[in-house]
Structure formats: structure tokens, C-alpha cells
Amino acid sequence: MTPTPPTPTPPRQPDHGLDEPWQAQLFAMTVALQDGGVIAADEWALALGARIAASEAPDGSDYWDCWAAALTDLLAAKGLVGQADLSATTAAWHDAAAHTPHGQPIVLPGR
């Protein structure tokens, strides 16, 4: 009797659940911008799809980074955020994160 070969395991689908508070906040901001008519669902789908297609992480581990980049792309394309503002806010966030005790919320100065 010939042994039966093992059944191949299908590739694991990436889990895009909300693992971090910033992911939930990013999701909520995107929904609010869609609900407010700032971005349309179809342009959002195209922007996110383009970022995912350009991703260098075939396992989908950078899904939320792609999400953030796609939202930034759309807001910049609409003139709602400039590169200087984006760079300054990013730097302020990294600085605040570096000086925030573990487990405490990150607060940007003056916000």
C-alpha cells in the first residue's frame, strides 16, 4: 500500500486586525474622512491598493504602514497636508514617543 502524501497547507492569509491603538485611530480617521466627504471610497480603495501593490512585504506585515501612507498620499494630493507639516508632526511624534513612559499615551506638545 502506497502512503498518501500529506495535504498541502494553504498559505496563511495575513491578519489585518487592530493590534495597536494607533491602528484603530488611523482606521477611525479614515472612516471619518470618508463620512465627511473628504475622500471617496473608490479613491481610498485605489490609494490603499497602490500602496499594498508596491509593498515589499509579501506577507502583508506592513499592511497598516501601507494604510497610513495611502491616507497621507490622499491628504497631500488634496492639499490638506503639506510635506513640511507632515515632516514636523512626524518628528514631534517620534520625539514625544521617545520621552513618554511605557504604557502612557503619547501627547504631542500644543495639541
Rank of each mutant, 00 (worst) to 15 (best):
P58T: 07
S61N: 12
A98D: 14
Q23N: 02
G82A: 04
R111D: 14
I39V: 14
E43V: 15
D59P: 00
W67M: 09
E20I: 07
G82D: 10
S55K: 07
P5H: 02
G110V: 09
A57Y: 11
H99N: 15
D85K: 05
I52C: 15
A53T: 12
T72N: 07
A57Q: 15
L74T: 07
V31W: 04
A57E: 15
L71Q: 10
F27V: 02
A91I: 04
W64P: 04
A32M: 13
A92L: 15
Q34R: 12
A41C: 06
D73L: 03
L46N: 10
A96K: 01
R51N: 13
A50W: 00
L46S: 09
L71H: 04
I106N: 01
A70W: 01
Q25N: 15
V81C: 05
P109C: 03
M1Q: 00
A98R: 15
A28S: 12
A77D: 14
Q23G: 02
G79L: 08
A40M: 03
D19E: 14
G103N: 03
A68N: 07
T90C: 08
K78N: 09
A28V: 05
L74F: 10
G79P: 02
G36M: 04
T90N: 10
K78S: 07
G82P: 06
P11G: 01
D65F: 06
P101T: 11
G103L: 03
I52D: 11
G17C: 06
H102A: 14
L26C: 06
W93R: 13
W64H: 13
P11E: 00
R12G: 01
G103I: 05
P5C: 01
F27I: 04
A70Q: 03
I39S: 02
D19Q: 14
L46K: 12
A84S: 03
G103H: 02
D15K: 02
V31K: 14
I52W: 08
Q83A: 09
A77E: 14
D73I: 00
G110A: 10
D95E: 15
E20L: 12
D73P: 00
D62G: 08
R12P: 13
I106R: 01
L46E: 14
G103A: 02
H99E: 11
Q104F: 11
L108Y: 00
P14H: 04
H102W: 08
G17T: 08
T7S: 03
M29Q: 13
A28P: 00
T89W: 05
L26P: 01
P58C: 06
A53M: 05
A68D: 06
A50V: 03
A57T: 12
H16P: 01
T7P: 00
P58W: 07
V81D: 01
P109L: 09
A98M: 11
P21L: 10
Q23L: 03
D62W: 08
G17W: 01
V31M: 13
